[in-house]
Simulated scan of single mutants.
Amino acid sequence: MSAILPPADRLWWKHPLDRVEGTWIAIAFAWCMVMFIMMIYWHAYGRQNLSTETYKTTPEKFSAKTQAMVDKYTVRTETDQKIPVVAPPADVDVYLIARLWSWWPMLELEKGKTYRLHLTAMDYNHGFSLQPANINIQVVPGYEHVVKVTPNQSGTFSIVCNEYCGINHHTMVGRIYVK
């Protein structure tokens, strides 16, 4: 057989496997099974992946829910744009909007209390990256992503958009305070 000339018998799959080929196929299959099992294990026990719920929504519906929460639980405003800081009680649905170059509103949560955090984007894909906790979620327009959050340490946490969303992407930061 030559590498230049085509094989005389073109039905290559009918040829018997060489011992080395069979060994590599077995190793590859075993590795695939290990990786598959590890994905399930790490999701359940490794605390690596967030379990989220996702629902279809519209900007109007989500804005109305967010505005109702802001009207009810605002404690102060911050920055030159007067972004409201919202302090909802535990076990309440908390809404956060991503839109071109801002997260709205800022949140003030209590340590050890559980909240259902609802996220959506109003315009383009955005990334919700909570630092320094290293929680990352892609926020997509038309979908409401719901994450159960229980802050376990006090402090000030930054929300950074990690999906490029335009010329002022670098200014798209938000804040979560944990008391």
Rank of each mutant, 00 (worst) to 15 (best):
S2L: 15
A3K: 09
A3D: 11
I4D: 15
L5G: 00
P6V: 13
P6M: 10
P7W: 00
A8D: 11
D9I: 11
W12Y: 06
W13D: 10
H15S: 13
D18W: 06
V20F: 13
E21W: 08
E21R: 06
E21S: 13
G22R: 14
A26C: 03
I27A: 12
F29Y: 04
W31S: 11
V34S: 05
V34H: 09
F36N: 11
F36L: 14
I37C: 13
M38G: 00
M39W: 11
I40W: 05
I40D: 06
R47I: 01
Q48N: 04
T52K: 06
E53W: 03
E53G: 10
T54S: 12
Y55D: 10
K56P: 08
T57D: 04
T58D: 07
K61R: 11
A64V: 09
K65H: 02
K65A: 06
T66N: 08
Q67M: 14
D71L: 11
T74S: 15
T77H: 13
T77F: 13
E78K: 09
E78Q: 10
D80Y: 01
Q81P: 00
Q81C: 02
K82D: 12
A87S: 15
P88I: 08
P88E: 08
A90V: 08
D91S: 13
V92R: 10
D93H: 12
D93K: 15
L96A: 06
I97V: 14
R99H: 03
R99N: 07
L100S: 12
W101S: 14
W104G: 00
W104L: 12
W104A: 06
P105T: 07
M106F: 15
L107N: 08
L107H: 09
L109E: 07
G112P: 03
G112Y: 01
T114M: 04
R116S: 15
H118D: 03
L119N: 01
T120D: 03
T120G: 03
A121T: 04
D123G: 05
Y124C: 02
H126W: 00
F128A: 01
L130K: 06
Q131E: 14
A133N: 10
N134G: 08
I135V: 15
N136Y: 13
I137T: 06
Q138T: 13
V140A: 02
V140E: 08
G142V: 04
E144G: 07
E144Q: 13
V146W: 02
V146L: 04
V147W: 09
V149T: 00
V149K: 01
V149F: 15
T150F: 11
P151I: 08
P151T: 03
P151Y: 03
N152D: 12
N152H: 07
Q153T: 08
Q153P: 00
G155K: 05
F157I: 01
S158A: 11
S158V: 11
I159S: 02
C161I: 09
N162W: 08
N162T: 15
E163H: 04
Y164S: 02
Y164R: 01
Y164D: 04
C165T: 12
I167V: 14
N168L: 11
N168C: 05
H169S: 07
H169G: 02
H170L: 07
T171K: 14
V173L: 14
I176M: 13
V178R: 07
